[in-house]
Design a protein around this nucleic acid. Structure first.
Length: 596
RNA sequence: GCCAAAGUAGUUCAGUGGCAGAACAGUCGCUUCGUAAGCGAUAGACGUGGGUUCGAUUCCCACCUUUGGCUCCA
């Protein structure tokens, strides 16, 4: 067997060897599970005494020691009874054995020489000699709930990387180091785009001028494209009366993610002076925009002739995420959804879905994401637990099928996930990987059977009767924060010209060229180019370096020659000097780079 | 929230049970420069609160924040 094809067996075998090493050093440890993962493996343990990263080196040494003994891996099919006997004392294993027995699945164990055995269906390498001693590395430890359930005990998970050769391992480690350089949290600081300030609040980013203009450019593009695609814009406030949220159901089923109400009946001043609390009104910070859009719909009776409505809003919502879940811009507490709700007749659903998917594909293309690198998921009901969902079975069947059909028609390669639907409807999600390979949901297309019922949404059909419309939630970016975070990583901070916060940095060679540079700046701003001047008292070389490090797409050097020729000397990011150009030509070149 | 690790100038990093060190960025001078770092001076920090100690940035504890996971999610 060649080394390329058995890497998964190697990884799985290493996970067993890790467990063997752990039991040797800490014999009272209880074993969880130890599967392979992308690039490696992990194993979950319940240690008697906590261990830390510092202990990994010893375990790694012990693993190498075991490998060097050229131990055989041998499978053995056994009865439930025997399995229970062999693994007595391993409470998690016994739980798994019970489940296997209940499902009437065959039970097998794998022995590693005579030093270790584990409940396992394999496959493994035949002998540890197939494992490269230098091809693996224990990387870190982390807590992980038994069976992924928060209510279960937390085990200690040890992660390892494993490859066929040391070279591949080293290359992978190097790649991770490189990836860390494009982390949006690092680049956000280096490029002065945003920061998250403890004094303001966790998960509430502050956008610096360069970040804010980036957002503005994206948002302007978004509005333009929405109007072109038949959407209308709506707007709603950040807070809404508690009654609204009681009607929507969020008061009950979303309360674990919501900020508590603002309980008011007086101004802050009145409250401070009287030192008593008068509550006559309760407002909630909105965790989503939908109920507001629903109220716009309900403001007047609707005819079947008016449908579809496509109402879009970049609406800022607030969700009280658990502290440990917060992460840079990709997971925050206050974020702006590029939200839209489509309210339509059943016969329009298919057409509306097509339009949204086309729009999503257009957006990914415009921002340079290859749709092949975006993971698409179709989330369906849990077939075993159909009662827990809002809406009728027919409604679900129809929407699940139509989502699948349209996704196929649009050639999306998607993964179906049973049981992953929201309780209110099936959905199609698009997830983008960050620099470190973690997936983040961005675009989403969701049916909703809950709100139309709770708010009793209707339209008058062509028979003069009330009928319930279909409601779709959709976001293209998901949220501006997350999308911009991923965009920063995607471009490693080197934004294409149309997105770059500063498109051109003007560098007068010396003080005597400052006035000309100022004139150039004025002209460029008039032409809609985002430009700045750096006339600080530094050498040209140093100012070029500074602009390059800020990843500014163009540097315009202006000296005697350019004044004489009424031009600028254009230097392109990473590519160097491109020669002289008139301002008009330069502006045109930049304008051409906006996607359409 | 849970498991683990880490918090030293604006940033990136050094270091110590006894006055805290650098580079870059900043400020002030000098220099006025042709495509990735000119020279000199100057200011600036041990996350917070307890404890141990003659003395704590250093050791211990708690908290806060950050990072990697888990859970949850746009």
């Amino acid at each position: 067997m060649n080394k390329q094809s058995n890497i998964e067996e190697v990884r799985h075998s290493l996970s067993h060897l890790l467990a063997a090493a752990v039991l040797k050093k800490y014999p009272k440890t209880k074993l969880g599970i130890g599967p392979i993962i992308e690039n490696g493996f992990y194993y979950d343990f319940l240690f008697q005494k906590p261990i830390s990263d510092a202990d990994l080196a010893d375990l790694e040494k012990e693993m190498r020691h075991l490998i060097a003994q050229k131990l055989d891996f041998k499978a053995e099919k056994i009865t439930t009874l025997k399995a229970k006997k062999i693994l007595a004392g391993q409470k998690f294993k016994l739980e798994l054995i019970k489940e296997l027995a209940k499902a009437k699945s065959p039970i097998s164990i794998y022995r590693t020489g005579d030093v270790f055995l584990d409940l396992c269906k394999g496959p493994h390498v035949k002998n540890t000699s197939e494992i490269n001693l230098e091809g693996f590395k224990l990387t870190h430890i982390a807590g992980a709930y038994w069976k992924g359930n928060e209510k279960n005990p937390m085990l200690t998970r040890i992660y390892g990387l494993a490859f066929a050769t040391k070279k591949e391992l080293d290359e992978h480690l190097k790649m991770i180091e490189e990836a860390k350089k494009r982390d949006h949290r690092k680049l956000g600081k280096e490029l002065d785009l945003f920061h998250i300030d403890e004094k303001v609040g966790l998960g509430l980013p502050l956008w610096h001028p360069k970040g804010a203009i980036l957002w503005r450019v994206i948002e302007d593009f978004w509005y333009k494209k929405h109007l072109e695609n038949g959407y209308q814009l709506v707007r709603s406030p950040h807070i809404g009366n508690k009654i609204l949220w009681e009607t929507s159901g969020h008061w009950g089923f979303y309360n674990s993610s919501m900020y508590p109400p603002l309980e008011v009946g007086q101004t802050l001043e009145e409250r401070q002076k009287n030192k008593k609390v008068e509550i006559s009104e309760e407002y909630l910070l909105k965790p989503m925009n939908c109920p507001f859009h629903v109220q716009i719909y309900k403001n007047s009776p609707k005819s079947y002739r008016e449908l579809s409505f496509r109402w879009a809003e970049c609406g800022t919502v607030y969700r009280f995420e658990k502290k440990g879940e917060l992460s840079g811009l990709t997971r925050v507490r206050g974020f702006t959804q590029d939200d839209a709700h489509i309210i339509c007749r059943k016969d329009q659903v298919e057409e509306e879905l097509k339009r949204v998917i086309d729009f999503i594909l257009f957006i990914y293309k415009a921002f340079g994401f290859d749709i092949k690198s975006v993971n698409v998921y179709l989330s369906l009901r849990d077939p075993k637990n159909k009662e827990k969902y809002a809406g009728s079975g027919e409604g679900w069947n129809f929407t699940e099928n139509v989502l699948r059909k349209i996704a196929r028609e649009k050639n999306l390669s998607f993964v179906e996930q049973e049981g992953e639907a929201a309780f209110y409807g099936p959905k199609l999600d698009f997830k983008i990987k960050d620099a470190l390979g973690r997936e983040w949901q961005c675009s989403t297309l969701q049916f909703d059977f809950n709100l139309p019922e709770r708010f009793d949404l209707t339209f008058i059909n062509n028979e003069g009767k009330e009928e319930r419309p279909y409601m779709l939630h959709r976001a293209l970016f998901g949220s501006f924060e997350r999308f911009i975070g991923l965009l920063i990583e995607h471009y490693a901070g080197a934004f294409p010209t149309w997105l770059a916060p500063i498109q051109a940095m003007i560098l007068p060679i010396s003080e005597k060229h400052s006035q000309y540079a100022e004139n150039i700046l004025k002209d460029l701003i008039k032409l809609g180019i985002r430009a700045e001047i750096n006339n600080s008292n530094e050498t040209l070389g140093k100012r070029i370096r500074a602009a390059e490090m800020q990843k500014i797409p163009y540097i315009l050097v202006t000296g005697d020659q350019e004044i004489e020729n009424k031009t600028v000397a254009v230097r392109e990011r990473e590519k160097g000097n491109r020669g002289e150009m008139s301002i008009k030509d330069f502006a045109e070149m930049i304008k051409k780079q906006i996607p359409d």
